[in-house]
Design a protein around this nucleic acid. Structure first.
Lengths: 205, 205, 205, 205
DNA sequence: AATGAATGAGCGTTCATTCAT
DNA sequence: TATGAATGAACGCTCATTCAT
């Protein structure tokens, strides 16, 4: 492979390595993934990986950090831009299938679940920076809906969890059960249904 | 360790090894789990494991088989014993928190998710014998409720998935985010809420 | 297996173990042969072998000792019973194919060759008690024939070696190259030819 | 150990490993030989062996292939270059002691004999490519001598075997009985004697 | 005397990491 | 910066040996 001289080229190569790492970690899990395979998937040789990451563990940390944070900020912005709570929920239910079907989130989730015990700090950090903030944003919108009388919400935090549960379910389903399967889960329809059921369940009588 | 001479004692030891294996696989993942550690967790020496299982892979298969199938049969029986669809759902929502909090299912799920790519046949078999049957049973009860006019169900299969989604969510949550955390998720309350929201969402207007 | 109470029964079982050991050592070599397999081939359990032999090494030694010595004494007797040197040689050439085709010698030779470096004392002992005595006996008969003018012998020791060389060749051939081969070496014919050629080569002009 | 960078240096290192392997297999047998010992005898570490050979078995195959074939072609050429059958035989009897005393053949033969049952395909291949061709070449020269009236040959194939038998004998003798022995077999004299006896035995009356 | 469950040292093999070029 | 040969710790698995019954 020709050399990455500029800092831009280096950043690109670093990203290529992270992409390769995600795929390898996803397919094999952290322990079974081989540095060699990450390297060749990124089109470089084994030693090169160590120019960009100090160790396999650092590749993992780099991977988590590169994916985690940005998405949540987007989410927070989107939810705050909605006029009403129901509108915000509907935006959410339109975003969710996109995340499940067209983002690296399911792969990352699989990796995190599989290797969570090997990286408790990562899990902790991830929970605080991603999960808690995500659930927090939804909790807030539910409480706003409750205050405005728009929604009937008994426990906003638990309700937020029920709101995102199908996303977790669908993400897991995709990465675990849809490897080489002909009939994939209809994610769009699932979230449309979820939308209508949640709206009905939270509507004032 | 004293010897297992009767076939009963041997079966007990086999089970002790499977228990140890579940914990090790759960904590480290299949690849990172060491046969040595499984052995000492079960209180025997390395070589002894191989008296009960031909290989690490066979330990894994033994583990999956020992946990998977029986539970689902129970579920099917329970659901069919209910008088009405709503009653059946309520039984389901009382069972779910038990499964999440007091069965090996969450640990097993974590293992399966983490190592699904290493054992596609296991995943396939598990899906057919456990997942599809579980979702199938719920789908049937929803359709029965629909036929009797008790429930409003647009798509029974997708609805069944939304019914179980919080169980997947809660199971994952427990094993991933509640390692050494002081404030655990209130699973009971979550499923009570899920119960009331699902019932409301499926009720005739 | 029922117990061997009398010392005769014990001796029989010991012999059964040695027979099994010869076959196992022959088929796998000393290192690759498993005590377990020797035991089951003899129809007893693993632990029983250790009632008759202190260790795997002792099984090997027991095996060598049980086969080696007696045969050579027979040979010495036979050769001394002959009227003339040529007669003695002819007896020898009739015995040789029997040894090659119908005695455990080829198997034993294969084992000894394969594991000679692991058991230098055994090899040394075997050479002194079997090989040197065998070659010595033939050397003596050749020298007797030379003294009587019956044979032309330049170097009796080397000639003795040329006399037995085809037996070594045939023994090796059988155990190495005739495993599952349809057309075996015609040992009888080989030694008839050897007989005639040696006689002609050693005859006075 | 410094690195083998050029393909020439790598070929050299591969050869060094094969040399080490021959010695280890010869001394301990295939099963008892340790990859570690092969490595250190070649001056490299354990892992390095696996850069050159996929497995212990492949080391064995590599060893057989590296030694077997070339020698026989030489032999065929040499025998065909002789003016007469007797001349050819004499050349053969001058080559034989060289092979026994100064080639790896005796060591290789010992290894092959000791582990023939573990590698039946190797034995089969070796027999066809080396043994049968070697015996075939000698058979042909004997038949040529017979046709020209130079030699009296009853059965060319069996005679060829008697011609080479002392080489097998001497090779075995060397590797089995001359480990740490002061008085080695006089191989030169043995083959001189064999020469004269064979010539006499095959001469027309 | 016989069994076979248990042990643990030992070996083949893998792979993260290093480093000379 | 990039390479890939070399290393050696680590792990799955085997099997000679022990010992309680």
């Amino acid at each position: 492979m020709n050399r990455a001289r500029t800092s831009h080229a280096k950043e690109q190569r670093r990203q290529a390595l992270l992409d390769a790492a995600l795929d390898e970690f996803f397919e094999k899990g952290y322990t079974a993934a081989r540095m060699d395979d990450i390297a060749s998937r990124a089109g470089v040789s084994k030693g090169t990986v160590y120019l960009y990451f100090k160790s396999k563990e650092q590749v993992f940390h780099g991977l988590i950090n590169s994916i985690a944070s940005p998405k949540i900020q987007e989410l927070e912005v989107v939810l705050h831009s909605a006029g009403s709570a129901k509108e915000a929920l509907q935006m959410l239910f339109r975003i969710m299938p996109m995340i499940v079907a067209h983002s690296p989130m399911p792969k990352l989730a699989k990796v995190l679940i599989g290797d969570c015990n090997a990286f408790p700090e990562v899990v902790c950090h991830y929970r605080q920076q991603v999960i808690d903030r995500g659930i927090g944003a939804i909790t807030q919108l539910l409480e706003a809906g409750k205050r405005s009388g728009e929604l009937q919400v008994a426990d906003a935090d638990l309700t937020a969890r029920l709101v995102i549960a199908p996303m977790i379910y669908a993400a897991i389903w995709r990465v675990v059960f849809e490897i080489g399967v002909e009939q994939p889960l209809n994610v769009e329809a699932l979230f449309e249904l979820h939308d209508s059921m949640i709206i009905k369940a939270l509507s004032a009588d």
